[in-house]
Write a protein that binds this DNA or RNA. Structure first.
Lengths: 169, 169
DNA sequence: TTATTTTTTAGCATATAATGCCAATCTAAC
DNA sequence: GTTAGATTGGCATTATATGCTAAAAAATAA
């Protein structure tokens, strides 16, 4: 085990792996040759490491980012949802209904007395939002409350998860 | 303009473009040949369209997704921050300070009386969180309040932005 | 420290994919 | 229908990914 390696849950990363993760989180479609150059390895071991990170499940996928506003979705909202009862059935049903709504970008189960879920939704305009909220979301069984915040500006988004080396231990 | 096209702010998309956007948002590293097959075009026009979507700014980038938990970040929190004054200087300073913290995955300026910003942060454990909150974030000039929610489970994440055709108009 | 084992690498050959070009096809307007 | 413009498919070329092997590096044991 190299001295610079980082033992984590089932994975051991050295500085090459950390660099790969960092670069791919910023430039997900970089080709293997340039990635290899940037981390200071030749292409073949570099590719082997990328494949290993994918196979290990540490890299879970790749996504293109699109400009939602330019696609016509000018409104992004955070929706905090409260449920009446905290039973697995209630939750499972809610989650299935929400998963069927393409406007829902994200759904997190969270702690807190004010809400059980936070949804992030994108819609065309306020009319669409009202329709989504009143006709879709609040009609899901068990939903007792909904509180909306609107995103005025996206200051930071899609930032890389820190490598362990960023942490102060 | 083809009959199936979708006029948006400065962009006109037909079904091929919409399919490309949808597929690349799910499989950001798919190769051009397979992408071309899936949308029913030959590779060369397919690639030309992808480049056009990138050049137009509709596709803003690509990201690898990593499993934060397996990287040692077992705690994800949503942090709602209130500011004393809503001046550009206050905001700019806060945003710069927050951008320097690698644990901050996302920072959104939002509406609402309870908070001005929502941060999404990932940390190793509750000790780290406490340290981040008390020693870093609440010490930023102008921060008057912070309220934390913790993410219990990620139900949905990184979903594709709906193509316009998903909308009911 | 030195010898031995194990792991990882670089380089090359081969397979696969991306890119640029052009004739043919399709679309939209007249 | 006819024409003008845009888009496509196929091909040649260039670039990249992948698999293999010998060499190098790292880890382990003596």
């Amino acid at each position: 085990m190299p001295k610079e390696s980082t033992p984590v849950v089932g994975v051991t990363l050295d500085r090459y792996d950390r660099q790969i993760l960092d670069i791919l989180q910023r430039h997900g479609r970089i080709n293997n040759q340039e990635l290899a150059e940037r981390i200071g390895l030749s292409p073949s071991p570099c590719l082997r490491r990328v494949r290993a990170l994918e196979d290990s499940g540490l890299i879970t996928g790749y996504r293109a980012l699109v400009d939602a506003k330019r696609l016509g979705h000018s409104l992004t909202a955070l929706l905090h949802i409260s449920m009446d009862r905290h039973t697995p059935e209630r939750f499972a049903n809610f989650e299935a209904k929400v998963a069927a709504l393409p406007q829902v970008q994200e759904c997190l189960l969270i702690t807190g007395q004010e809400a059980d879920y936070q949804l992030k939704v994108v819609v065309h305009d306020m009319d669409d939002y009202q329709n989504l909220l009143l006709n879709q979301i609040t009609r899901i069984e068990g939903v007792t409350g909904a509180h909306s915040s609107f995103v005025l500006r996206r200051v930071l988004e899609h930032r890389p998860v820190p490598s362990y080396s960023d942490a102060p231990y």
